[in-house]
Each structure stands twice: as structure tokens, then as C-alpha cells.
């Protein structure tokens, strides 16, 4: 006799597929926000399932800071080709060149906040009415408040204190022209769930997540990769370490950790024993207690 209940990964998968199909049914012009990180790869994988045997019926959109890991771009291009979907790119460099945003100054300068303008520009230019993201509620305290369907006003802003209630599995994606929605199909997944699922489904991920030798610099309690964008401070020295990345963002702010985990199995084992949160290595979140909330209000991912 079979059991008539789902295990938790199957239930999370089913919920995410349901949300992706609702996006397709309720919006004219959705896109998947694709960063090349594991969460957006997971969302893309779930979209494949949701629409099988059709191909994913919307494009991937990448907000390109110009400060990329080359591996991420390669991975992105290969995936787009394999899926046969369109790729839209919003370029932070272009926004800087056009003078719409100004590069931050100083040692800790990043293009993280600058992405907001590019993201909102790309949404407007492509007439996107729903941008699907890989945000998870366990990541950060402001994200814990997110809806599956999250409204953004004419200016792309989020008003966390005035959100539409989401009851049962009924999603209200109604909006006026110029407004848009963010949809978060993997809201209820934790970092551990993501890795367990990637292992179970054997989903391809960029090699950066696996332990590898790399030139790095010790800064802000993590190993920052050496790249053309990194300015060394006096006293900082380049070392070659076996590291892996737990999250992937802009190459200038994503810190790696020393690790021997070079298979998915080993990553799952390593992550389950982690004592620090995932975003602990992200300098973008360390700026203040409400760094994420402030960026999100303005229209961040």
C-alpha cells in the first residue's frame, strides 16, 4: 500500500511549481531573475518542471554588475543555450557610463546597491510585470516578511508594512500598469533544503560552489577572491587556498571559506554542520542591522 503524504522536499517542490504556474497564468510578461547563484538555478530547474513538456515560457534576466566570476557567466550562457530560452541582461556598467548611478568610493565600495537602478530599469524597459526571484525567507529578517507574490509600486518600491495578506494558496497578482510584482517560489526553503534538493535532483551548479584552489585575500573574516577589481590594502597579502563559496554574488563582495568539500554530498554534510549563517560572508549585509530591509524597500532583489 502506498503512503498518501509527501515528504517535505516533495511538498516544497509542489508548492514552488504551483507558484510558478500562477505567475504564468496571472502575468503578461514575467521573467526569472537569474544571478547564476544556486537559488536562481533552483528556481529555473523548478520552472522546467512546472511547464514540462513545454520549455520555460519566459526569459531569464541577469543584472550584470560587471564584477562577475567568469565561471558564473559561462554557466549562465550554457544553461540558456540548453534550455532554449531568451536571456535579458541589464548592465550596471552601462548605468554608470550613462551617469544614472555613481560608483561608490573607498575600499569597501561595491556595486551591490547600484544593481537596484539597473534592475528597475531593466524591468521597465522590458515591460516586465513579474520578476521571479530566488529569495528565501530564512535568509534574512526582512526577507522573512516577504509574500509569495510581493507588490512593487510605480517606483519599484516595497512597502513591508502594507502588504496584501496571502491566504491558503490563493495569490493576488492584480496590478496597475507601471507596477510590478516579485514572485518568490522558494520562500519556504531553507539553505539546507536547497542543498538537499540539489543533491537529490543532481542539479548542475557552478564549480565555484565546490572546493577549489584559488588566490584570495583575508578580509572581513572571509577569503575574498583576487580579481582585476580587487584593490589590495597595505598589509594584505595574496594567498593560495583551497576554498569554496557558500553564496555567489558580485566577485568583490563574495567571501569564500576554506573547505575540502568537492562533491555535493560533502557540501550537504558541511552545510549541515555550519555555525554561521549563509549571508555571514556577504559584506553587503554587514553594513547595518537593516541593510537588507533598506535595499529591499528601494527595489532590491
Amino acid at each position: 500500500m502506498s503512503k498518501y503524504y509527501l515528504n517535505y522536499l516533495d511538498e516544497l517542490e509542489s508548492e514552488a511549481i504551483y507558484i510558478l504556474r500562477e505567475v504564468w497564468a496571472q502575468f503578461e510578461n514575467p521573467v526569472i531573475l537569474f544571478s547564476g547563484g544556486k537559488d536562481s538555478i533552483l528556481v529555473t530547474h523548478l520552472a522546467q518542471k512546472a511547464f514540462y513538456p513545454s520549455k520555460i515560457p519566459f526569459p531569464l534576466m541577469h543584472v550584470d554588475t560587471g564584477h562577475n566570476f567568469p565561471e558564473t557567466i559561462q554557466f549562465r550562457d550554457d544553461l540558456v543555450k540548453e534550455l532554449g530560452v531568451e536571456l535579458l541582461v541589464g548592465s550596471v556598467q552601462e548605468a554608470i557610463d550613462d551617469g544614472r548611478v555613481a560608483e561608490e568610493k573607498g575600499k569597501n565600495a561595491t556595486r551591490n546597491t547600484l544593481q537596484i537602478t539597473t534592475l528597475l530599469d531593466a524591468i521597465e524597459k522590458n515591460k516586465v510585470d513579474c520578476a521571479i526571484g530566488g529569495g528565501r525567507r530564512d535568509e534574512e529578517k526582512a526577507r522573512a516578511k516577504e509574500r509569495f507574490f510581493s507588490h512593487r509600486d510605480d517606483f519599484g518600491q516595497w512597502d513591508p508594512k502594507n502588504q496584501r495578506p496571502e491566504l491558503w494558496n490563493i495569490l493576488n497578482g492584480k496590478h496597475f500598469e507601471g507596477e510590478h510584482f516579485r514572485a518568490f517560489p522558494i520562500s519556504n526553503w531553507t539553505e539546507m533544503d536547497v542543498w538537499n534538493y540539489i543533491l537529490r535532483e543532481n542539479i548542475a551548479i557552478p564549480s565555484l560552489y565546490l572546493a577549489h584552489q584559488r588566490d584570495v585575500v583575508w578580509r572581513s573574516n572571509s577569503w575574498i577572491p583576487v580579481s582585476e577589481f580587487l584593490k589590495l590594502d597595505a598589509g594584505e597579502k595574496v594567498e593560495n587556498k583551497k576554498i569554496r563559496f557558500r553564496t555567489l554574488g558580485d566577485i568583490t563582495i563574495t567571501g569564500g571559506l576554506e573547505s575540502d568539500a568537492d562533491t555535493l554530498e560533502k557540501i550537504v554534510a558541511e552545510v549541515s554542520a555550519m555555525k554561521q549563517t549563509e549571508r555571514g560572508n556577504r559584506t553587503d549585509d554587514k553594513r547595518s542591522e537593516s541593510a537588507m530591509e533598506d535595499r529591499k524597500r528601494q527595489g532590491y532583489f
Binding site: R137, D138, A144, K145, K161, P165, S187, N188
Partner: peptide, 10 residues
């Protein structure tokens, strides 16, 4: 607390 927040544990 102003709004529903979601927490996770396993």
C-alpha cells in the same frame, strides 16, 4: 510584531 513572519527549523 507588525506583520506575519515566517521561521524555519528542522
Amino acid at each position: 510584531t507588525i506583520d506575519v513572519a515566517y521561521r524555519y527549523f528542522t
